[in-house]
Design a protein around this nucleic acid. Structure first.
Length: 552
DNA sequence: TCGTGTCGCGCC
DNA sequence: AAAGGGCGCGACACGA
């Protein structure tokens, strides 16, 4: 059963697809939805973020939905639905949040979204019909259908995680900051341990007023002191021997902690013992989630994770998909050798055992290089070796790169396609072949082509890995709901954090073992959903802990 | 004083 | 070990 949920004339309308519309007041909505949930409908709505936070706040969960906006973005852009009416349609309010990535001509004037478009009820119903038509008309309707279901399930997970929040001990975070930086200082002042390091740094550089937070100023001061760095990046500075380098690196580390996850972050992001990150499903072109709102959820530094502590009587179950992207590549390409290398727990160790490279570090560097398109350094040098050992896997990323260099689109396992390069890119490619082309034109065009190729090379792997993670989460969400047996979201095991290939579940201690099993099962099922019976394993490292810092 | 661009760095 | 993909954010620089 599908029920459309939409707003009209300031009111709310429920439109069952096989029944009569029904007007509902704002106040009655949670009760009505809760009652209808007993029939396990799939709610069809414009945007999960418009509906679900309010329902959760009223104590109501839904099992299934269709997020038309997220689905529209995928269908609009996918090579698998290129012949659909949605793909052919002009930009509309359905493209609102994704205009930057889906515009057919990204460099052309952007659609004017200042105009508020009120969605008529039939728009929701009509859009859903167009989407169903696009899926049915695709040569890969099963994969695409799975992708859209997973994307919508992800939107529910995101809303639920934001609602529940990540358990956060502000007192422990404060103690941690004090340990690194010294007691909290007045606004505009540096805490004393940071000042002390700055003092040493200024002395070493004989620059008593240096502000190391300013890269140009710092570069100048380094130059005066005889340090010929060409940037102030830490990894660049590490190669230099000079007495100022150690305090400088220490200063940078501490200053970073203070500005990114210091007391100000704590004040603005943690309340009532919870951090409520704002996830943006589909926020990255590859289909990965993004985060927004200042919390920086997807950049949560390892240093502060010890402040994430389970409630008394509860545990955190932390799960990490091991070497996810190389395993995805092995599965995408059907590379038997790489599948075998990953048949143990550690894919990189398996690569070493196969004799392709000498050390685990080399295996990792080589694989990352293959997926990112490294050309120089050790990573670049290992590429031919890797290509001999795993020809199918390397051929897949090489072909993706060549496609990008030609300006073509590449597509993930389930059907998310890369954006087309912009007008400027295409112009510079055609300039390189024009009559007035210079060697400089040609060289710039080659550079841009290779750059876009590195993007498409990575897109297929990163995007397919994001699809695996979505299926993992969606499977786990169902399993946890089953474990809860009707308990409210935050009274039983529930997801509280997600970071690309890592999930954290907060649960009563006596549920921890069942949660661990559910996580492993959900991962295995995700592998089968994407790749059927291919012999590629997706092991997860699972740890039940009291605080996130203890995990790995 | 504001908005925009760049740098540097945290995460995967 | 090296600087190849994807992000968001804070601080600074700069011009309007």
């Amino acid at each position: 059963m599908h029920i459309a949920l939409l707003r009209r004339d300031g009111g709310i309308v429920l439109q069952p697809f096989d029944g009569e519309p029904r007007a509902v007041s704002e106040a009655d909505l949670p009760g009505v939805v809760a009652e209808l949930e007993l029939q396990h409908p799939r709610w069809v709505w414009d945007d999960t973020t418009h509906w679900y936070p309010g329902l959760l706040a009223s104590g109501v969960r839904v099992e299934r939905c269709v997020d038309l906006r997220l689905s529209h973005a995928i269908i609009r852009n996918s090579a698998l639905t290129a012949g659909s009416r949605i793909a052919a349609s002009s930009l509309s309010s359905w493209d609102r949040a994704t205009v930057g990535t889906v515009a057919a001509e990204p460099d052309d004037a952007l659609f004017d979204f200042d105009v508020q478009v009120e969605l008529e009820p039939e728009d929701v119903v009509a859009e859903f019909a167009l989407q169903q038509e696009a899926i049915a008309g695709s040569a890969e309707s099963a994969r695409l259908g799975l992708l859209l279901a997973a994307e919508s399930a992800g939107s529910l997970v995101a809303a639920e995680m934001q609602f529940a929040g990540l358990p956060w001990r502000a007192d422990l975070h404060d103690a941690l900051l004090e340990n690194y930086l010294g007691p909290r200082a007045e606004p505009g002042e540096r805490p004393n341990k940071l000042s002390a390091v700055l003092h040493v740094l200024r002395a070493e550089l004989e620059s008593p007023n240096l502000n190391p937070d300013s890269p140009p100023e710092l570069l100048k001061a380094l130059g005066v002191a005889g340090v010929m760095a060409k940037s102030t990046r830490s990894w660049e500075l590490k190669k230099i021997t000079h007495p100022a380098i150690a305090p400088l690196l220490e200063y940078k580390k501490l200053a970073r902690l203070l500005s990114a996850n210091g007391w100000h972050w704590l004040d603005t992001n943690v309340s009532n013992g919870r951090f409520h990150p704002e996830y943006v499903p589909g926020g990255v072109v590859t289909g990965r989630w993004a985060s927004t709102g200042g919390g920086g959820a997807l950049q949560l530094p390892k240093k502060v994770r010890s402040a994430v502590v389970a409630d008394p009587g509860w545990k955190l179950v932390v799960a990490d998909a091991s070497q996810l992207e190389p395993r995805i590549l092995a599965a995408l390409s059907g590379d038997r050798g790489m599948a075998e290398a990953g048949a143990g727990q550690d894919l990189y160790a398996g690569i070493v055992a196969s004799g392709a490279v000498a050390t685990r570090d080399q295996a990792k560097v080589a694989m990352l290089g293959a997926m990112y398109g490294a050309t120089t350094g050790e990573s670049g040098r290992l590429m031919p070796t890797l290509a001999r050992a795993y020809p199918a896997a390397i051929a897949l990323v090489e072909e993706a790169a060549r496609a990008g260099e030609r300006g073509e689109v590449v597509t993930t396992r389930l059907g998310r396609s890369s954006p087309r390069p912009g007008a400027a890119w295409r112009q510079s490619q055609s300039d390189a072949y024009g009559e007035n082309s210079t060697e400089e034109h040609a060289s710039r065009a080659r550079g841009q082509a290779r750059s876009w190729g590195r993007f498409t090379r990575n897109f297929v792997v990163q995007g397919s890995a994001a699809e695996w993670a979505l299926c993992w989460m969606a499977n786990l969400r169902n399993a946890l709901a089953g474990l809860g047996g009707g308990a409210w979201l935050t009274d039983s095991a529930h997801m509280v954090f997600f970071m690309h290939d890592e999930i954290v579940v907060h649960c009563p201690t006596d549920q921890a073992a069942a949660v661990e099993n559910a996580i492993r099962q959900a991962a295995a099922d995700a592998g089968r959903l994407l790749f059927g019976q291919l012999p590629v394993e997706f092991p997860v490292t699972v740890a039940t802990v009291d605080d996130y810092g203890q995990a790995k």
